[in-house]
């Protein structure tokens, strides 16, 4: 599965736009490596608003939960975040795989809040891109193989007009965690 209709540059631009509108700040202040929380002042309600705007733009469903919440839903409370709000070594191991270079300084004992400030404009845009990559080969309604743009950057089937059915963000994260778990048995 892939998506040849929407480029990463477009996604990045729309992500910046969504952030600028939500936080009511000038778009020129926003760079790919701006931390949403630390540099731009976003709070949890703002994230939901940004996600909502991106969902409307692309016709996708963004993840409702952060990766470590999914981990605990799958493997039990406490496996990722201990009862003082600090990350476990296992959580750090997973984040290092997930975030690569950005997570290289993560050490055991850091608090969950410090991790969420690692979310940048770029990582959000990449999250959108991951979902867009799940564009199915065929329309799930009629089997048609062609897509066209409807409103904004929403793809619909050229034959029947049904919106493209992407995998939702939470399912993508769960799949990711389960694959890593199969390979490495972290949790």
């Amino acid at each position: 599965m892939s998506n040849n209709f929407i480029t990463y540059e477009q996604v990045l631009e729309e992500t910046k736009k969504a952030i600028a509108e939500t936080l009511n700040i000038d778009i020129s202040r926003i760079t790919p490596d701006s931390s949403l929380i630390k540099d731009l002042g976003a709070e949890s309600l703002d994230f939901l608003d940004i996600n909502y705007r991106l969902e409307q733009t692309f016709g996708i469903k963004m993840a409702r939960r952060f990766i470590l919440e999914h981990v605990e839903e799958l493997y039990g409370e406490g496996v990722a975040i201990d009862d003082t709000g600090k990350l476990t070594d296992k959580a750090i191991e997973l984040l290092k795989i997930r975030l690569g270079e950005k997570a290289k300084d993560l050490k055991s004992g850091i608090y969950i809040d410090e991790v969420t400030s690692l979310i940048t404009v770029e990582s959000l845009a990449k999250g959108v891109m991951d979902i867009l990559q799940t564009l199915p080969e065929k329309c799930t309604a009629c089997g048609g193989k062609d897509w066209k743009f409807a409103e904004h950057l929403q793809l619909v089937c050229s034959s029947c007009g049904e919106p493209a059915e992407y995998t939702n963000g939470d399912d993508l994260i769960v799949n990711y965690i389960e694959n890593i778990q199969k390979e490495r048995r972290i949790f």
Partner: peptide, 10 residues
């Protein structure tokens, strides 16, 4: 309000 944005998603 802002919380409505949450409901909109949930």
């Amino acid at each position: 309000t802002d919380s409505f944005k949450v409901l909109r998603q949930m």
